[in-house]
């Protein structure tokens, strides 16, 4: 179970994790342009604080479900960068053998029950996973990542209710990045804070700064403690922002340049970096971590590029009916 607050030393690897995610995300556009990656892909640049903050409070025994913007979640939960990158490139060595791609990265052995192409689909799955945890008496929680847009799907409402009446160990993690694809939360929700919906489902609704990894960690750890002591689910809403378009093709007519620039000033990575420096971590250590993160992603990319494509028969494997 995660401690409520982390020491400065414990924050350093989280800084690295966030950098790995950002570096990986920054490769997506070029990879698509070069034709190495295909399909739809949604980057989480700007939201790394939520993914890493939440997962830093989870243990290896815990589970996550993710959404279409899932690269950060799965890497934060411990997915191997090499196998994630290979999946993005559709290679046989990818975590799904090249059959899932960007929207479907999963690794159940690490508690990653899967990213998802269907908005809102992860929530009922998280409820079921938590039911299994409870029935089997496991010492685990299930954290379920979804967006502000997904909070308007029926699955959100039904999942919160069921998780609450059955007192299941679920953490509903809403990444409120202010937009769906283009739909502004301001217009799509009649309320400012999604967390207040928790009241209607009899669970705590907590609001946090998603770009402050320490706060994300602390609030998550508290929710885990509640869940593990049998007090049921929580809804955690983290305010954050996606810096890039919804997917790689997005004219972003629904928001202003200025708004994006304002949020960039609240970069979760820079904020942690500043904190680490003021708390005595040396510039040298920081730079070392940065080059390690770069190298890890670089290595993952090389691994992916040199990996074989799936053999043709793979298309027909794993279908059972």
């Amino acid at each position: 179970m995660g401690k409520k607050s982390l020491s400065t030393e414990e924050l350093v690897p989280l800084y690295k994790k966030m950098l790995e995610i950002r570096t990986l995300e920054l490769l997506i556009k070029p990879l698509i342009r070069e034709g190495l990656m295909r399909g739809f892909s949604h980057q989480s640049v700007g939201q790394e604080g939520v993914a890493v903050g939440v997962c830093s409070a989870l243990s290896d025994r815990d589970y996550i479900t993710s959404n279409h913007r899932g690269h950060g979640h799965v890497v934060a939960k411990g997915a191997d960068l090499k196998r994630v990158m290979a999946e993005l490139l559709g290679r046989a060595t990818g975590c799904c053998g090249g059959k899932g791609g960007s929207m479907h990265i999963a690794d159940p052995s690490l508690g990653i029950l899967g990213a998802n192409g269907i908005v809102g689909a992860g929530m009922p799955i998280a409820v079921g996973a938590a039911l299994a945890v409870k029935k089997q008496g496991l010492d685990s929680v299930v954290a379920c990542f979804f967006g502000d847009g997904a909070a308007n799907e029926g699955s959100f409402h039904e999942s919160l209710n069921l998780a609450a009446v059955w007192r299941l160990p679920v953490l509903f993690i809403c990444e409120n990045n202010l937009y769906g694809m283009s739909g502004p939360a301001k217009k799509m929700l009649p309320i400012k804070d999604i967390a207040i919906r928790a009241k209607g489902y009899g669970m705590p609704g907590i609001i946090g700064d998603g770009n402050d990894i320490e706060e994300v960690h602390k609030l998550t750890a508290e929710a885990i403690a509640r869940a593990k002591s049998g007090r049921g689910p929580s809804l955690l809403e983290f305010k954050t922002y996606r810096w890039f378009g919804h997917s790689v093709n997005d004219a972003e007519a629904y928001r202003t340049r200025e708004e994006v620039e304002e949020w960039k000033k609240l970069c979760p990575i820079h904020r942690l970096r500043d904190k680490l420096l003021t708390r005595g971590i040396t510039q040298e250590t920081i730079e070392h971590v940065e080059s390690e993160a770069n190298a890890a992603v670089e290595e993952a990319l090389e691994y992916a590029k040199s990996s074989p494509k799936p053999e043709p028969e793979a298309a027909f494997r794993d279908v059972y009916a």
């Binding site: 295909r38 290679r91 090249g98 791609g101 479907h104 799936p310 793979a314």
Partner: peptide, 16 residues
């Protein structure tokens, strides 16, 4: 179409 879900990899998808 073949009796499988659509795979991501384009050469796999082309086969179905």
């Amino acid at each position: 179409g073949k009796e499988v879900p659509s795979p991501y990899n384009d050469t796999l998808e082309a086969q179905i």
